[in-house]
Computed example of a mutant assay.
Amino acid sequence: MDNHEASATIADKPSYRPDPVVNKITKDDVVDALAAGLRDFKAAPVYGLSIGAFFAVGGLLVISSAAALGMSYLSYPLAAGFVLIGPFAAVGLYEISRRLETGDPVTWSGIFGTMWAQKGKELSWMAFVVLFIQIMWMYQVRLLLALFLGFQSFASFSEFINTIVGTPEGLMFLAVGHVVGAILSLILFSITVVSFPLLMERDRDFITAMITSVKAVATSPIPMIGWALVVTITLVVSIIPGFIGLVVTLPILGHATWHLYKKCVAPET
Rank of each mutant, 00 (worst) to 15 (best):
S75K: 07
V179A: 15
V57L: 15
K24Q: 11
A216L: 02
L246D: 00
N23F: 01
I252N: 05
K119G: 10
K121P: 07
P18G: 10
L60R: 07
T9D: 08
V176R: 05
V83R: 04
F128L: 15
L149K: 08
L229H: 05
E159P: 02
G52P: 02
L235D: 05
V46H: 08
I161T: 03
S238Q: 01
V46S: 08
E201W: 11
P223Q: 04
V83W: 05
L78R: 00
M172L: 12
F157Y: 14
P221F: 04
F41M: 00
G103Y: 09
F154G: 01
W116A: 14
I222T: 06
W227H: 04
F55H: 04
L74A: 15
R39L: 09
V31A: 13
G48S: 00
F112E: 04
D28E: 10
T257D: 02
T9L: 15
V22I: 15
I85D: 05
A43T: 05
V237W: 10
P105F: 06
V194N: 03
S15C: 07
I244Q: 06
D32R: 12
A209D: 05
F154C: 01
L123C: 09
L184C: 09
S124I: 04
Y16H: 11
K13D: 04
L69S: 12
V83E: 02
L100R: 03
K13Y: 08
T219G: 08
C264S: 15
P87W: 02
G166E: 06
L171R: 13
P77Y: 04
A117M: 10
V165L: 14
L93K: 05
R202I: 01
A43Q: 13
Q152G: 09
P241V: 00
A155I: 01
L260Y: 08
H255N: 14
G110E: 06
D29L: 09
N162V: 11
R204L: 14
S158R: 06
L143A: 14
L34H: 03
S213K: 00
V247N: 10
A33E: 04
G245Q: 08
A218K: 14
L69F: 10
G242Q: 11
E169H: 08
I161L: 14
L131W: 10
P168Q: 03
Q134T: 09
F160V: 05
A216N: 04
H178Q: 13
I191C: 12
V30S: 05
A79G: 15
M224R: 00
F189D: 03
E122R: 00
T192Y: 04
L199V: 11
A68V: 08
M210E: 01
D203H: 09
K42S: 07
W227N: 02
Y139S: 14
E169R: 08
L49H: 05
Y261A: 07
L145E: 12
P221M: 07
T219S: 12
V129C: 09
P241L: 07
V236T: 12
P77G: 01
L260Q: 05
Y73K: 00
N162G: 13
I96Q: 04
V106C: 00
L144K: 07
I51Y: 02
A11H: 08
